Simulated scan of single mutants.
Amino acid sequence: MHSLIAEVFEPQTWLEERVYELLELHGIRQPREIRVSELCSAYGIELWDIAGRSRAHPHPYLPGRFVIAVDHSLPLPQRREKIAHELGHLLLHEGMQPWGKDAMIDWQEAQANHFAEHLLMPYPMFGPLLENCSRYEAPSRLAAIFRVPLSLAQKRFDRLLSRMYAKGHPLIW
């Protein structure tokens, strides 16, 4: 793979910048250090295993605290993605979902999805991981290293290719 220019890995949005600051605040510099359960714990958020749809909600016994309830039957990569998504809701939206406002809910869901992508697969960590790797092998390699679903790794890698193209970098490696 051609050497990637640092500007491709620089934050391009407010949300991406905030997530990278969060990672820096917690000293997270390597994929193996991205432990969503520890991040939740750092913010006083409890993780509960449930049977059913994953969600975040106020803690039933501790005012001002929250719970992320995650379907216990999910494989680890999907579980990490769900926790990161719900953590995004809590950190960005304080767990609030207004009723009857479909456009607002769609916006919050999209924002929580992007939060999860940036948190679980930060672009600055991609560079050395993609050395000596074809663009066809990259998504599965990234999925394994970042412990995320292949679909998320593919989406994130496709966005990186789009970003490289937009910045005028070659997409052949």
Rank of each mutant, 00 (worst) to 15 (best):
M1P: 14
H2N: 11
S3A: 13
S3N: 14
E10V: 08
P11L: 12
W14A: 07
W14K: 12
L15T: 03
L22M: 01
P31A: 07
I34F: 08
V36F: 12
V36I: 09
C40Q: 06
W48Y: 15
I50W: 09
I50L: 02
A51F: 05
R55S: 07
A56H: 10
L62Q: 08
P63K: 07
P63F: 05
A69W: 01
V70K: 03
S73A: 04
P77E: 02
Q78G: 09
R80G: 04
E81F: 04
E81I: 01
K82V: 05
A84Q: 00
A84M: 00
E86I: 05
G88K: 01
H89W: 07
L90F: 09
L92V: 01
H93A: 09
H93F: 06
E94Y: 09
G95A: 06
M96S: 02
D102A: 10
D102H: 08
A103D: 12
I105V: 15
I105Y: 14
I105G: 13
W107C: 02
W107Y: 13
Q108R: 15
Q111F: 15
Q111N: 14
H114I: 00
H114N: 00
F115G: 09
E117Q: 04
L119Y: 03
M125Y: 11
F126K: 04
G127H: 11
G127A: 11
L130C: 10
N132V: 11
N132D: 15
C133L: 05
S134Y: 03
R135F: 03
E137M: 13
E137F: 14
A138H: 05
P139G: 10
R141A: 14
A143W: 03
V148H: 08
P149Q: 06
L152R: 09
Q154A: 15
K155R: 05
K155A: 08
L160R: 15
L160S: 13
Y165E: 07
K167M: 15
K167Q: 12
H169P: 04
H169L: 12
H169K: 12
P170W: 03
